[in-house]
Nucleic acid binder design. Structure first.
Lengths: 207, 207, 207, 207
DNA sequence: AATGAATGAGAGTTCATTCAT
DNA sequence: TATGAATGAACTCTCATTCAT
């Protein structure tokens, strides 16, 4: 007997074009159902129905519900990461205020990729297969910030870069989260983004 | 399907001592099962069993699962609120650094009331009956901070007190959350608390 | 979290009279469905339906299908055992031919307790939970015969009593089985029983 | 439900060499999967995979699962039959003890052709397509024995040859079965075979 | 006030089988 | 002749909830 496939791994890599479309359809349906009905009420049968495939087809590609959701979260996190890193190119020698502005904007932007899906992912997903993937993204952001702090050590006040990265990423993240979840009245004008910049700059400034 | 009861309110207010004990036992069992097995696997039958009470008895006091969880969350939030406000007495005329230190400590302390339960409440609870109650506590904190800012308007830099309260509460909250969830290596020494104080003080300082 | 109940153990011991009836009804329904449709097509839903209880009730008493069938087999084997031992009292000092006749008759009789159910149990049950229980009965019969041989060592030819018991019990058992399964044309007249007695007596006779 | 195909017959007789190999691969895979995972867990998809063939190809040669298993059982029974008859040549005028010894050995040997597969076939196969084929082999053995009894009528005691064949074949068969299934500790030394010969000879001996 | 047996919709998942390519 | 994506009925089992006692 073969070992049971690890619960959150995809079942097979589709080879034909048709299957690729099917997988895409299933993941899109998963996102939609998750957003519409929440995780609790999102059943695999419903997802298959929305995807326009039979339940059997769904299970050909995903061994269980957790794996299905995990795949979707992976996709989402990957998109956030791309958006984030894409906005961070050429940051090296920018002056402090500009650098901070860019980084904050990158975080904000990465949270605005499919914000409704993001809300569900953050708020409702059970630990297994969901949350840790998002936390991995946060860890990645922290690493980026910590690296940047080290590279600009002479220009910033904090000496413990890891601690500073921890403080900064969580602060900014939380504020952005909250703003996104509140329906974004704050986010639309740039007051919030500026205020966050103020927070960060003052925290980093030598003196 | 039978029509779903909509209420999240408790069914009856027990007046006799014995009933009160029963309710307490049920809520404690709910907390334990929630912590032990997570929300997904916490069934009402299991909770009744752990409480040493029949399932029928449980439903005499709580009309449905949501109400049960809601009552537990209410209790928890109430304890957080008490801890929080308890630490905030006589803050009126304290100098800025001390006032900030006290407030930060109050937030930290309120998060350390039954931290395991807190983790479950924050991470796993479905919207209904759980999250909005926690958010209500955050809103309360924000109101407190906003009030304090207004009362100390001359001594602090930000002019938009609502925005500042939003920024501060979410920042501090998120950092504390994260620290609690990470197993609290940071929290034990006071480095983190000091760093957060730095963040807030610099944000508030005029010029 | 409690350890998962071993797969073939019953779930709870019913305390009220009503539940005892329910359990009986479920087991009877299991027997009927097993006989009517065979093991493969016997679904738990069908069994519950025939028993006149809901599927949930069935699962209150039996944690899974295997446990349900196992309980039924236990009951059946117990009845066979009672029939068998009931016919064996006062065998002690009977002359050889009479003793052999009685034992053979006991085996035949024990196979005629609900022969249709017996057929299903023997022919169709998957290893888990079914077969080994029947094999335990065979082992029991072997032990009885071996004991009897030892107690009558002077009167019988074979010296290796364990081997002799093995040979005898399997022979008689198989012949009876086959006769039962073939629709019992042989069994009705006593020719077969006499012939088996011949086989055994000749095997046991000293010289 | 689509109408279920009723046939147990193979779909087409492969004529080309390649097809023949494919069929062989499928049947070998069936045997392996049956032995490894048991009948319950043996799925046609799994068999096709093990055979290194697509599920579609499997269904080109076998109209359904029953036919597939039936073909395998046919093969197995055919091999048993060949082994059996192969050892029975030139039995005609052999003295009684030798003849009996040869026949018993033939039965034992025929049960040792792929004993693991035999176990599965005997223990696990559902009636349809499996069991009756094995019973056909038993009937064949009975016919052989009955014929031999008739041809040696003067030398043997029993007058009802059909009944005697029934008794003998089932006895020997059962003992051999049981020995094979028990892991064959008895079978290895020849004590068992000798004891069975004793049983049979005494049963057949005139007076 | 307390019990616990009973309910049953609906969940996740499997697998024999088909058919367009 | 071979492929493998797609199908969907049917399965086992859970759990929030009710109600007669």
């Amino acid at each position: 007997m073969r070992p049971k496939p690890l619960s959150t791994q995809a079942r097979k890599r589709p080879k034909q074009a048709r299957s690729q479309e099917t997988v895409t359809a299933i993941l899109q349906a998963t996102a939609r159902v998750l957003v519409d009905t929440g995780y609790e009420k999102a059943s695999t049968n419903r997802i298959a129905e929305v995807a326009g495939v039979s339940i059997g087809t769904l299970y050909q590609y995903f061994p269980n519900k957790a794996a299905l959701v995990a795949a979707l979260v992976d996709l989402h996190v990957e998109q956030m990461r791309e958006t984030f890193t894409g906005l961070l190119r050429d940051l090296g020698e920018a002056p402090l205020p500009r650098a901070v502005g860019v980084m904050i904007h990158a975080i904000v932007a990465s949270h605005q990729v499919e914000p409704e899906l993001h809300r569900v992912v953050i708020q409702q997903l059970p630990s297994v297969g969901g949350r840790e993937r998002v936390e991995a993204f946060q860890a990645f952001c922290q690493a980026v910030v910590e690296t940047w702090l080290s590279m600009n050590a002479r220009r910033v006040r904090p000496r413990n870069h890891r601690l500073a990265a921890f403080v900064l990423v969580h602060s900014v993240d939380a504020i952005v989260h909250a703003a996104v979840l509140e329906g974004a009245t704050f986010l639309k004008d740039e007051a919030l983004e500026a205020e966050v910049a103020e927070l960060v700059l003052r925290y980093l400034s030598p003196e």
